[in-house]
Nucleic acid binder design. Structure first.
Lengths: 118, 118
DNA sequence: GGCTTTGTCAACCAGTTGATTGAGTACGTC
DNA sequence: GACGTACTCAATCAACTGGTTGACAAAGCC
C-alpha cells in the first residue's frame, strides 16, 4: 500500500476520519478540538491524524503547544480524477449498450421474446 | 465499517481492486479473465470480488459455470458527491479566507449578538 | 525551576485483511 | 455417470488496524 491513491482511499474508509475531514473544511483545528466530539482517547485521534497526514489529506504546523491541523484540498483532485475517469468510461459504455443489445438481439433471436404477442 | 461509503473507499484502497474496476469499465469479465494478469490464486481474486460486490461496486450473475462480473457505475456517484461537497467547501473557505479570519476575530470578542439588549 | 497544557511515542491487544492450500459445488460435455 | 471447467467455501497464517494505557516531550505560566 505504497501509492498515494491507496493511502487516500484507505484514510477515508474510516467514518471518524471522514468526519474529521468534513470538520476541517470549515476551519483548521487542534488535535484537542478534533478529539472532542469522539469517545476515544487523544492518542487514538492523534493516530487518525497521522493516517490523514501520510495520505496527504492534512498538514500540521506548530503554534506553541498546539499542532493545528489544516486540510490539503488538492488531494481531493487526485481522487476526483480517478473516479471521474472511470465513471465517464463506464457511462460511455452504457450509452452504447442499447446499440449493442439491439445488434445482439438481431443476431441472436430472429423470433420475438417470451410473452410478446406473435 | 457498516456504511456503504466506508465499504466503497475501503474496497478502492487496494490497487489490485482498483485495477479490476478499471478493466471492468471496458467490459464485463469472468473471474478467470480478471485473475489472469495477476500473480495470485483464483481464490484471492474471488475474495477481492466479494469485497467489491459488498461495496456495491460490482454485481455478478450466472452464465453456465461462469460468474460474469459487471461494474455498477452508480456507486461512483456516491463517492463523487462526498468528495465534491467537501472540496467545494474547502475551496470556498480558501477564497473567503480573509473574511473568515476577520469574522473569527469578531466572534472571539466578549460581546454576543443574541439578547444583548440591556 | 516546577506545574500545566497539548500532544506524541511505545508497547500491547483484539479484530480484520490479503494471501495461501485443500476440499467441495455447479454446470456442460463425453 | 465420469470428467473437466469455473468458481466458492473453510481453515490457516502473517501483517496491518484501531483501540487502549503509561511514559515522555515541548511550550507557556507561576
Amino acid at each position: 500500500m505504497t501509492d498515494q491513491l491507496s493511502k487516500v482511499f484507505a484514510a477515508l474508509a474510516d467514518p471518524t476520519r471522514r468526519d474529521m475531514v468534513a470538520r476541517l473544511t470549515v476551519a483548521d483545528a487542534t488535535v484537542g478540538d478534533l478529539a472532542e466530539p469522539y469517545d476515544v482517547s487523544l492518542q487514538a485521534v492523534s493516530k487518525h491524524l497521522k493516517v490523514l497526514e501520510e495520505a496527504g489529506l492534512v498538514s500540521r504546523s506548530r503554534e506553541a503547544q498546539r499542532r493545528p491541523v489544516h486540510l490539503e484540498a488538492e488531494v481531493f483532485d487526485l481522487m476526483s480524477k480517478w473516479i471521474e475517469r472511470y465513471r465517464r468510461q463506464a457511462e460511455e459504455r452504457y450509452s452504447r449498450l442499447d446499440a449493442v443489445l439491439a445488434s445482439l438481439q438481431e443476431a441472436d433471436s430472429p423470433t420475438a421474446e417470451e410473452g410478446t404477442a406473435s
